[in-house]
């Protein structure tokens, strides 16, 4: 049992590119759900559109990366408009259904043989990130005490956490303003807001666009970090991991999704490595009749799911949430 390695591995992952991606996706969901009360179960779709918008622009249509990034972000805005126009006038659950379906449709389009000339089919697209790594100022492995990152990863993380910081700053400024007050009021009671002369539909649309943009940014960081856009990265579990990050950290809090993402990836990798070591080798610590190596890679999801359930029961506001706000609902 190598505890030092377990911690080193888990912390590296908790600060790594995946955590950045999920932090950004969860920040988007926080705008949707935490502040506006919109149920977006298709954040993976927004991520995919941002990612493929960028990758396909560069690889298939040969435009420079910076322009590709703009195309990717613009594509998430278009997706938000397409989803929002028909559903935002309806009850919240309609948006949930429309988003989860749209995300799956998009993933299947990106994966399809028909469009493989444009989106690369199931092997995806690669070779668009060269311009990004050309800007890398790091030439050697970057060491932070007992964890270290390769120079390319360090560059992704610098940009990625910088984007997270910037996003949090925008969320902070926006939600502390009268604009944010309207969003929170819509979350509480749409009709009351309407009766006071606010265009509820347009505010919900703005929230959907803004949150979708953060999701698209997450998708872009994801494909830059692995220099490839692969359709399986944007399956529904991506959306639900982002939701888990948000609820773990606490919705309607600026830092909630970021801390949630870090803790989520720490726990997931900690448990994964722990059980992997417990079942590894010819004479594993856990007897094979109790758990095999294959089962070990799955048990972390069971434990994490159980943990999330307990969290929702005993601390439903998440780690950072405000208990008083929630208690009012209990009447």
């Amino acid at each position: 049992m190598n505890w030092a390695y377990i911690f080193e591995f888990a912390i590296t992952q908790a600060l790594g590119p995946t955590a950045v991606v999920y932090a950004l996706a969860a920040i988007g969901l926080n705008i949707h759900f935490g502040y506006t009360g919109l149920l977006n179960f298709g954040q993976a779709g927004f991520m995919a559109v941002g990612a493929y918008g960028t990758a396909a622009s560069v690889v298939t249509f040969g435009i420079p990366l910076w322009a590709g990034l703009l195309v990717g972000l613009l594509a998430t805005v278009v997706l938000a408009l397409i989803l929002g126009v028909p559903t935002l006038r309806l009850r919240a659950d309609y948006l949930a259904i429309a988003t989860i379906a749209a995300a799956e449709i998009l993933r299947r389009i990106f994966q399809s043989v028909t469009f493989s000339d444009t989106f690369g089919g199931s092997t995806g697209l690669s070779g668009f990130a060269r311009d990004f790594y050309a800007l890398n100022p790091y030439t050697e492995t970057v060491s932070l005490g007992f964890i270290s990152f390769r120079n390319t990863t360090a560059w992704v993380l610098t940009v990625g956490w910088g984007l997270v910081l910037l996003s949090c700053l925008i969320v902070w400024a926006a939600t502390k303003s009268p604009w944010g007050r309207v969003l929170k009021s819509i979350r509480e009671d749409e009709d009351a807001v309407r009766s006071l002369g606010k265009n509820v539909y347009w505010y919900k649309m703005q929230a959907l666009i803004l949150g979708g943009l953060f999701g698209g940014l997450g998708g872009i960081v994801l494909i830059l970090s692995q220099s490839a856009a692969v359709p399986t990265d944007f399956a529904t579990n991506t959306t639900f991991f982002a939701w888990a990050c948000l609820l773990l950290g606490g919705a309607a809090r600026v830092w909630g999704p970021v801390v949630g993402a870090i803790i989520f990836w720490f726990l997931l990798n900690f448990l994964g490595e722990f059980f992997s070591q417990m079942t590894r080798g010819a004479d594993p610590i856990l007897p094979t009749w109790l758990m095999t190596e294959t089962q070990a890679s799955l048990i972390r999801f069971i434990i994490l799911g159980l943990g999330l359930m307990l969290l929702m029961i005993f601390r439903p506001q998440g780690i950072f949430g405000d208990r008083r706000e929630l208690a009012i609902d209990a009447r």
Binding site: I170, S177, W179
Partner: peptide, 16 residues
């Protein structure tokens, strides 16, 4: 405060 109309801070860009 929500009740007041014509608030500049209710437009996203100026809200920031």
């Amino acid at each position: 405060r929500l009740g007041a109309t014509g608030q500049r801070g209710e437009k996203f860009l100026s809200a920031l």
